[in-house]
Design a protein around this nucleic acid. Sequence first.
DNA 1: ACTTAACCGAGACGGTACGTCAGGTCTTAAA
DNA 2: TTTAAGACCTGACGTACCGTCTCGGTTAAGT
Lengths: 216, 216, 216, 216
Amino acid sequence: MQSRTPASRTGRPRSAAADAAILAATREGLVELGWSGLTLSDVAARAGVAKTTLYRRWSGKHELVVDAVAELFDELVLPDRGSLAADIEGVVLQFAAILNRPEAKCGLMGVVAESTRDDALRERVRTSIVERQKRLVLAGRARAQERGELPPEADPEESARTVDLIFDMAAGAVVHRTLVSGKPADEEWARGFTHILLLGLTTPAPNLTPPGKTVS
Amino acid sequence: MQSRTPASRTGRPRSAAADAAILAATREGLVELGWSGLTLSDVAARAGVAKTTLYRRWSGKHELVVDAVAELFDELVLPDRGSLAADIEGVVLQFAAILNRPEAKCGLMGVVAESTRDDALRERVRTSIVERQKRLVLAGRARAQERGELPPEADPEESARTVDLIFDMAAGAVVHRTLVSGKPADEEWARGFTHILLLGLTTPAPNLTPPGKTVS
Amino acid sequence: MQSRTPASRTGRPRSAAADAAILAATREGLVELGWSGLTLSDVAARAGVAKTTLYRRWSGKHELVVDAVAELFDELVLPDRGSLAADIEGVVLQFAAILNRPEAKCGLMGVVAESTRDDALRERVRTSIVERQKRLVLAGRARAQERGELPPEADPEESARTVDLIFDMAAGAVVHRTLVSGKPADEEWARGFTHILLLGLTTPAPNLTPPGKTVS
Amino acid sequence: MQSRTPASRTGRPRSAAADAAILAATREGLVELGWSGLTLSDVAARAGVAKTTLYRRWSGKHELVVDAVAELFDELVLPDRGSLAADIEGVVLQFAAILNRPEAKCGLMGVVAESTRDDALRERVRTSIVERQKRLVLAGRARAQERGELPPEADPEESARTVDLIFDMAAGAVVHRTLVSGKPADEEWARGFTHILLLGLTTPAPNLTPPGKTVS
DNA sequence: ACTTAACCGAGACGGTACGTCAGGTCTTAAA
DNA sequence: TTTAAGACCTGACGTACCGTCTCGGTTAAGT
């Protein structure tokens, strides 16, 4: 969240309740007004807080929304549904469900759009929202390895690359399906997606690529 | 582009040159100012055109940027690189190259962000930008079938679902890699992506895995 | 009215009906929209005429309204009510009646306001609207002289000055009463006004002005 | 000026200096650009103030100019020139001098023109500018009564009517002379005007001349 | 009847100001 | 020192009107 200067000892302390109220008001505003319609004046009014209070804690709309949205995605958990495929489907459906909430799609896409020209913001989005969800991929793989569905890691570097790839594919596909194609990422779709993803992960090395090009 | 009513026979005709100038100015503005920094006043000034002319043809920033960005993605072609895998890699890299251009990422994410609260806009984005690129998937599959890399279609409905799925996965993965993860979608990445995608497509595994069962 | 170039012999002649329609539409527009609300596009539409036609004949809103309003004041006539006082009262009431019509007050004050910074326009207002109403003062005086109520003119220069003064006093008082004070210039008021005006005109020379200052 | 709600105790108080700067800038703008050329953007820029500050205090151009012009006419004073006639001449010349200033004529006629379609505005013009100058008529009469030039009041209602009439005649005549006839309201003219006005006031002629009868 | 030139309607065009609104800073008094 | 309140500057918004222009098409006078 925002940088808290612990050096200040004197004076009136900041209201702790205000933070939560502001973030909730932000999400409420996103639901009703969308990203571009959201104004900090409105957030302040909703939270029963002065605009100054808000600017004292966040540097602007971007950062505020990042924090407000991040809390949403932290709800994701990895369910144990008995198999790797089912676990993947479960996470995908959870992710799709969150992305269906208006505050999530508005807020996320808004900050992503801004982050195309603001590296600091993109980094903040990545660390506050995206990167921390890789825990799901890691946990899923670990559980699959326990079950014997996947072999243990060999090359740690290669392993990290694969996690990134899977993450981009999963998150990207759900976002594109939901926000661009405008169709529901439902169970059937999740099954099809998981099918393709899993086969690629579990099949060692193909012969379809022309000679001279190995894949993994 | 905007709907042209051919019923108007009288009056001064609209300048054809203005359209091109405006769209080019829009892209230029996106490069320099980004989505949120782009103003229609600035576009008009760049294009040497009055603001009213702009509003006469487009209803606002959203629609204008959709048209301006759509022209970028129409540059995509399907190269014949000898195999399905190589073809996919080629298209993915082309797509990544376009998405690396600032006007493309700014503009695309900007309109997508807005479209989360505007169904008409999302439909416009879909038809003007996204949907027409499915031609690449269709052409790639046809060529692969000629080569014998893929079997001919059996169920047309299932086939359409697969095209959609592939498209969401490909477009989504590249976008997420480029814009969120912030890492380059380079040849190595494209190879990994293609590997996973292709195996899933070519392995005749059971498509209907019951929930809770393993896949491979 | 507008300058007509008689040098043009060939080609389609201007529609005579259009002029009248335009002036009528102008007055109609003044009634409904007022001076500042009046637009030439609206006038053109009301008159069933293209904007170009309008600009071909008048150079702008100012001149058009001058012509449109001038026609209103040309309705003034000098009634023969038997005495100078009654004649003055009659004309004053007529003038007040015209000035009560919204198109008259709107239009007149509008062009007068503009004319404070445009000498050519003020001259046009004076010659087209104001000056020609001095005929009423002249006719009234002539009739009073016939009746023997006023002596014949002695000094023609002095006479002209007096006509101007009376005119300014009469027109100014009615305008101020109607438009600024916002009270009706009714019969009682006209009687009071006429009383003061006439006494001053018919009394030869006062002694109230301090020595060394003669009035007439 | 604008109504100040003294109930507001909290928040940053309005800058008092801004008011004066804005009104001065308004007059400056009137001088250079005239009524129709005056824009609130320009006024704001001149006053070194944001447009919003301006709109926060005045509802529009009309009200702003009323206040700006009102200050001009508050400069009028009643000089003691020894006799009623001389006093009247003095005030008339002062009024003419103010009306000769471009900001005064532009502004006054502009708001009067607008007020022909806006009763609230006319009332504002009347109370803020016109009505308060009746003090001059009242003071002049009182002084003349002290001198014995005029008898004391008999009927207070009749007295008020006379004040109104004198005021309409004086103000109207000067305005018409200056702005419509376009000739200077100089000493000679003022003498002539005063002559007529005073005779009417001091001659105890029958006030109720039946219509159709001669006066003198 | 046939030029021919000015006329006409429609409406696009480059400008400019409008009045509103959001962003972000500041100045108060109170807590 | 923080807080609520709200005034402040900046700058874009989308609209409206101005006066000009460019079309296709019309209408008389002069041949």
